[in-house]
Simulated assay, not measured.
Amino acid sequence: MGQELKVIVFALAHEEYGVEVDSVKTIERMLPMTRVPKTPAFVKGVINLRGVVTPVIDLRGRFGLPEADYTENTRVIIVSVGEIEVGLIVDSANDVIDVDSDTIEDPPEIVGGIKAKYLRGIAKVGDSRLLVLLNLHEVLNKSEIVQLEQIEG
């Protein structure tokens, strides 16, 4: 038996994704955002979260998925990668589950239109559930993190 990973499960375009609980600070409802000029389209703006200016990106836009209207289920998952905190807009955040690291397989080249470099792997949960685990370091790759840090500064 491998290590147990605690993973927050969220939905994006009818697929289930997971991100390790260790990387997640909080999960918020949609908050008013301030648009920031000269940023990629998927950077929706910044929010003031308890006095901290936090950039927010729409994961649908980041992955080239069709945009969707925000609903009462839409959530902003505040994640921390290194020194930077970023909000990720997802369709809904569902639950926290334990994933056995032995059940994680390398991702195929493309899953639901998302390139493998953004994915850490695919976890088998139970008999029929597959969970796509994100590689946050790639989702927020260095050149984009530099841009986001400039927003904060």
Rank of each mutant, 00 (worst) to 15 (best):
A116V: 07
L59G: 01
I84A: 04
E16V: 01
T74Q: 09
K44W: 00
V96I: 15
T71G: 13
L136A: 04
I8P: 00
V9T: 15
L49F: 12
T74S: 15
V86Y: 00
V53P: 01
S80Q: 15
S143F: 11
L136P: 01
L12C: 10
G61W: 06
G112Y: 07
I77R: 03
G18D: 03
F42Q: 03
I151W: 02
A13P: 00
M30T: 14
R129E: 10
T34V: 14
G126A: 10
V81P: 01
R60Q: 10
K124S: 12
A41M: 09
G153L: 09
V111E: 06
K6Y: 08
G2W: 07
V9E: 14
V9M: 09
V53I: 14
E20S: 12
V46K: 00
V36E: 08
M33K: 12
S23D: 12
N94K: 14
Y17L: 10
E144P: 01
L130S: 09
G82W: 15
S23N: 11
S92D: 14
A123C: 13
I151V: 13
L31Y: 10
V86Q: 03
V46F: 00
G18S: 07
E28P: 01
V139I: 06
R60S: 07
L130F: 12
G113Y: 10
A93H: 01
D127E: 15
G121V: 07
D95W: 00
D98H: 08
L134V: 08
E149F: 02
I151G: 02
V21H: 11
E15S: 14
G153V: 04
N48I: 03
L59A: 03
T39R: 05
H14I: 06
T103R: 10
E138C: 04
L140F: 05
K25Q: 11
E67M: 12
L136I: 05
E15A: 12
V90I: 07
E149I: 03
V146F: 08
T54N: 05
G64Q: 08
A11C: 07
V125I: 15
A13M: 03
R29T: 12
T71L: 08
V81Y: 04
V46D: 01
S80C: 10
I110K: 15
G87V: 01
V21W: 13
M1D: 11
I77T: 06
L136C: 05
I114E: 05
L134T: 06
I8W: 00
D100P: 02
Y70K: 13
L148V: 05
G87E: 03
L131V: 09
V43K: 00
D102C: 08
T34L: 12
I84D: 02
K124G: 06
V56F: 05
L5E: 05
S80P: 01
V125M: 09
H137I: 06
V24E: 05
V52G: 05
V19F: 03
T39I: 10
D22H: 11
V146H: 11
V125Q: 04
V99A: 04
A41K: 14
K6C: 02
K38P: 00
G113E: 10
R60Y: 09
